[in-house]
């Protein structure tokens, strides 16, 4: 009985995190982006500095008419947002937030699980792009696919480097093996992982697939109402997942200078939040990369860097063992 209860509690906790964190990050993005541009951002919804802006947005989205274009492939069009969103919920289950048993579900091949399922999320964008019967959507879908193909490889290689260092594919196992000097050791891999993850989420400056000045909103052009909101939620859930994952793999997750036992989850939270801030910061600071620049960055810069990181990891691993 208590086992069932524990499982239910865990799933519930993951679900709450999944629903709350993306909103928090979205709100932070509103405010941080505004202040970085010398603006105030939302000020009215909720009274105090517009804290309820995203709730208001959600209510607005829920009220909108659910439209499927006449020429669209109805079923695929309607299914796409769910396919885009669900993988991130699944991934959250496997991310450890504290020492010991503080994880939704410990998996033997956690790193692989996380990366595999994150890759599936992109299928949602592809389905949306194809099923919308819209040229802009199709272009967006094409760009999404091209970007995924280019950036999944460096992401995998960088993650593999950490798995090599720890000698395990399990996320809690990697954290158990973590020492502080891993941070400088794996820093290149970390940068590659984070950059490739940003590209996979189609966040600026890698937002060519949704480049609003060229192709309206890419694969999501024809979406409105709740389905559109689901795509947006998927993007922000993706930020949560990417930041948490980078924190776990490269920054030591719940390890911290002090308070390792009781305050582990706080360290994890802090690292995730700082990384999420960086994601927003990058969006404000840099212009969008052109499609050929995107591909060039992945194939001529990130992949060689990731391979070099793997070589370095291998050499040091052999030396210290």
């Amino acid at each position: 009985m208590s086992d069932t209860l524990a499982i239910v509690l865990r799933v519930l906790a993951v679900f709450v995190v999944f629903l709350v964190f993306p909103l928090v990050i979205g709100q932070t993005e509103h405010k941080v982006m505004a202040h970085m541009q010398g603006r105030l951002g939302p000020m009215y919804a909720g009274g105090f500095h517009g804290w309820a802006q995203l709730v208001a947005d959600g209510v607005k989205f829920a009220q909108k008419e659910d439209i499927v274009p006449a020429g669209a492939d109805r079923k695929i069009f309607q299914l796409a947002p769910a396919i885009a969103l669900l993988p991130y919920l699944l991934v959250l289950i496997a991310i450890p937030v504290g020492p010991g048993n503080a994880v939704g579900q410990a998996l033997d091949a956690g790193v692989f699980f996380v990366l595999a399922v994150m890759g599936v999320g992109v299928l949602g964008s592809l389905m949306a792009g194809w099923a919308s019967a819209n040229k802009f959507s199709l272009l967006g879908g094409l760009r999404t696919a091209a970007q995924l193909l280019a950036y999944e490889l460096p992401m995998l290689l960088a993650a593999a480097s950490v798995a090599m260092a720890a000698g395990t594919l399990s996320l809690p196992g990697i954290l158990d093996a973590f020492h502080w000097w891993w941070v400088p050791w794996q820093i290149v891999g970390g940068l590659v992982f984070f950059t490739a993850g940003l590209a996979e989420l189609q966040r600026p400056p890698f937002d060519m697939p949704v480049a609003d000045s060229e192709i309206i909103f890419g694969a999501y052009t024809e979406y409105t109402g709740l389905r559109f909101a689901l795509f947006l939620l998927a993007e922000y859930a993706g930020i949560v997942v990417l930041c948490a994952l980078t924190a776990v793999l490269f920054l030591g997750g719940w390890h911290g200078p002090f308070g390792a036992d009781g305050l582990g989850w706080l360290w994890m939270l802090l690292k995730t939040v700082v990384l999420a801030f960086v994601v927003i910061w990058l969006r404000v600071s840099y212009p969008r990369l052109r499609e050929d620049q995107l591909q060039k960055l992945a194939w001529t810069c990130l992949i060689p860097l990731a391979l070099a990181q793997i070589a370095l990891t291998g050499v040091i691993k052999v030396v210290i063992s």
């Binding site: 941080v32 505004a34 202040h35 970085m36 541009q37 010398g38 603006r39 105030l40 000020m43 910061w281 990058l282 404000v284 600071s285 840099y286």
Partner: peptide, 21 residues
């Protein structure tokens, strides 16, 4: 150059906003 870009936005964030309320 990339670092300079980040510095600009960060500095702007710490300054007063110019929004007319």
């Amino acid at each position: 150059g990339l670092a300079k870009g980040l510095a600009v936005t960060l500095r702007t964030m710490t300054k007063r906003t110019v929004t007319e309320q």
